[in-house]
Design a protein around this nucleic acid. Sequence first.
DNA 1: CCATATTGTTTCGAGGCGAAACAATGATTC
DNA 2: GAATCATTGTTTCGCCTCGAAACAATATGG
Lengths: 190, 190
Amino acid sequence: MKHIYNQLERLGQLLRNNIRQIASEYELLPIQTEALHYLSRCNQYSNTPLAVADYLGQTKGTVSQTLKVLQRKGFIHKQPDPEDKRVIHLLLTEKGFALLEHFAPTQQFQQLVVYLEPQQIQEIQRNLELLLEAQIQLNQHKPFGLCKTCRFNQSDDKGFFCNLLNQPLNTKEIELICKEHQYPQPNYHA
Amino acid sequence: MKHIYNQLERLGQLLRNNIRQIASEYELLPIQTEALHYLSRCNQYSNTPLAVADYLGQTKGTVSQTLKVLQRKGFIHKQPDPEDKRVIHLLLTEKGFALLEHFAPTQQFQQLVVYLEPQQIQEIQRNLELLLEAQIQLNQHKPFGLCKTCRFNQSDDKGFFCNLLNQPLNTKEIELICKEHQYPQPNYHA
DNA sequence: CCATATTGTTTCGAGGCGAAACAATGATTC
DNA sequence: GAATCATTGTTTCGCCTCGAAACAATATGG
């Protein structure tokens, strides 16, 4: 496992450096682009400062400042929740969405496909999925998975429905990240 | 590839958060432990501030400050090079080595082995190796590989020898990271 | 209605981060 | 050998991350 740890640490560093390099052209830091990337993929119940803090593993105070910078630079705007006046929803501006086109994934990363065969790509995806689920399980970390893989998501002939939030979901929404996500059952090896 | 990118970004974040959590008990930041981890694995030609900067993808000015903190906290000490008086060698103190026992890999990460079968571990290692080499190739980044996989490393009945630095190497040294490392030839798919 | 919990912001101090200026030493060239 | 250029490392500046703690506002439960 030591070898895998070193490989993952290194891959993470290289990816982060890759992001840093491109982000610097827009005068952004890696953590800022990571927050934007999350906000572009999460659902309407998960786009709050607290959810970003949970996702990135930082305190709400730290995230609050990072969001202030992103807002000042025009990548996001804040929208008060009409029902719960404590809550703020974070929405990407057009500038924010435009930025992510260059970022997630980076162009350089997309070129990796040249070095890999389709079968290998499948295999790598499966392996990374395994590592991710095991890591989340061990960390006691919220999985932040997509609704379509969530135990609360129910599908019938009328579409999809979240049994936790008691809300209907459309085909776009079940592809988004939810902070309340729970896997149906452990699918790793005991 | 977009899926793999998202998985790798997430795995990197979780790993970094895991490190942050443990490091905070020692009042260290992730980047500081990453520098220490590198210095514990590199050879005597690669333990300089500039090499650390190349490895971590940061400027020498930034690294100089990080090293200053690590020195003040007693994890490393600086040793001037006797031949080239511009060069400083960075050596871990006992406290530095002791710290890494808890870190690389983290205890939590080692427990991942419970969720994986030996065959899967092999497969994951191979796949990560592929991704790493392709990523390094694309980044035009120095590989920072081990001497035993380097094209300059020659082995005969007397032991090992580096044809670049014209130095003999022992069995311990060929397991260390070298900043001059070069792969013998591309072993990915064109 | 009141105590408690939750969400988000602000403030503080330490430190990461890159760019640029700087100092010291080594290498090249003439 | 002296002048020029390259390399290595440090310092300074301004902006930002980061966590902890204090704070304000709203929600919830008795």
